[in-house]
Amino acid sequence: MKHSLLALTLAAGGLSLNAAAEMDTSYYNDHYCTTCHGADGGGSEGVQAPRLAGMEPWYLKRQLEHFRAGIRGTHKEDFQGTEMQPMAAKLSDDSIADLVQWVGTWKYMPTPVTIAGNAEAGKALYATCASCHGTSGEGNAALGAPALAGQNDWYLVTQLQNFKAGYRGKDPQDTYGAQMGPMAASLADEAAINNVVSYINTLGR
């Protein structure tokens, strides 16, 4: 299937500059997420890109919009976030809707445990978190808090570190991040972060 570049630019939104070459749009579309997020969005530790399979559509959409607008992933110390941000920068609304639909076709698969922390100690810490993220870490759409159970543990650790350090959640427009920031700040140190994530690992999915 060949289209002119112009049509393609409108369709895929992802092409820069140059003029009148022809290219095959059936191959070059916005479905490039799996190179980083792993086969069927199962998460890829090598690229530090988390599991997308099984993610709530509303949360996925919001994160893509936040990345696109630079509300998330623009702090220069946010090493992983700045990897993701340019991937969303050129997505159109239609493309985001299409991606949410596509990601929705992937079946959730369990993530491996890679963090060694004290889950017992983490359980006590998780009490605070449960009010928004749910007692089983299942998330709460009404509060805008995503599921935590079943997410890659190394990713959860990065997020808690980044919220705590102010690399995520500090943009004036990031109202949801603003709720989460102080919660991460309440985790005293690295050990507390590992402990609470170890507890989340036990919640299963």
Partner: peptide, 16 residues
Amino acid sequence: RSGTVIDEIGNRQVCD
């Protein structure tokens, strides 16, 4: 070369 697609994720380019 002419016509090559440079498949950089997030920054695709076509060589002209």
